[in-house]
């Protein structure tokens, strides 16, 4: 990788200040950023490590929500969310592999918004609030297409607040090489209705499948989505699956998520 300066602040305020430097970029778990830098696809001048910021670590329950610090690793979420939000714990425990889960963080994943990442589906399906150093952003406004979010230059995801659903499940169909989601569907059921978010499938990144939400809000049963069709247009087509195949997976996995959510 190309050379850079490295700073490891101990507070969000220091991190934000450090990110004011030209071509500065935050480094969270680094599980995506470092490989990109090794391939010279990314070459920040300054890396601001978020790993030393205590206030960005850990999970806490706040009423009906789970608040997770931006620098909390997938492994920690998989362990610590088990009681409060088992579907999220299961999702976290299925990201990458054990070593990746020990470094990768929820804030890093959301900020990166990889179209095949798992966390964006959970955030969108739960109507989560993305908390940054300067504001709070609703998930519906946060994800803005492939690798694109509402974050401004130098803005850090310090925490995520996820309303805990009554019932939820995440179904991930893996891409066999990268082990990312070829398609992943998060179904979350609340008193006010059902939300369904899909990752991996669309050329525009994570999205809500509103037809399924309507059908499931009406009747929360796996066969409620069997008759729905997902348009192949706009779905990703690559060597791992055609748009039509991905569209099929969206429907199948949604049904399975509903069945598993119980």
């Amino acid at each position: 990788m190309q050379s850079f300066d490295f700073v490891r602040p101990s507070s969000v305020a220091e991190a934000v200040a450090a990110l004011g430097a030209e071509d500065a970029q935050p480094l969270s778990g680094g599980q995506t950023l470092l490989p990109s830098m090794k391939q010279r696809l990314a070459a920040p001048a300054v890396l601001v490590s978020l790993s030393g910021i205590a206030e960005m670590q850990g999970l806490r329950r706040e009423g009906d929500s789970l608040v997770i610090g931006g620098a909390t690793t997938h492994a920690t979420v998989a362990r610590a969310a088990r009681t409060d939000f088992p579907a999220l714990a299961e999702l976290a425990g299925n990201i990458g592999d054990p070593a990746v889960r020990n470094r990768g963080t929820i804030g890093g994943s959301l900020a990166n918004n990889d179209p095949s990442a798992c966390y964006p589906a959970a955030a969108l399906a739960t109507g989560a609030t993305i908390v940054t150093d300067r504001r709070q952003i609703a998930a519906d406004d946060f994800f803005q297409g492939l690798f694109t979010t509402a974050l401004e230059e130098g803005e850090i995801v310090t925490a995520v607040r996820l309303p805990i659903p009554q019932r939820a499940n995440y179904q991930k169909f893996i891409q066999p090489a990268s082990r990312f989601a070829l398609v992943g569907v998060f179904v979350a059921s609340y008193a006010g209705g059902v939300r369904v978010a899909v990752t991996g499938a669309s050329g525009d990144g994570v999205f809500r499948w509103t037809e399924a939400e309507a059908a499931l809000s009406d009747r929360f049963a796996a066969d409620a989505v069997t008759g729905l069709t997902v348009e192949a247009e706009g779905m990703i087509g690559d060597l791992h699956g055609t748009p039509a195949y991905r569209a099929n997976l969206v429907r199948v996995l949604t049904g399975r998520a509903v069945a598993a959510a119980g």
């Binding site: 891409q175 066999p176 090489a177 990268s178 690559d238 060597l239 791992h240």
Partner: peptide, 25 residues
């Protein structure tokens, strides 16, 4: 079931890393 080295029509390798070339785990 999994492995396939694929070029596009211009000769770019589409499976140039373990992100796209799948081997059994």
């Amino acid at each position: 079931l999994m492995e396939h080295c694929v070029y596009d029509e211009t000769g770019q390798l589409l499976t140039g890393s373990y992100m796209d070339y799948a081997m059994p785990r």
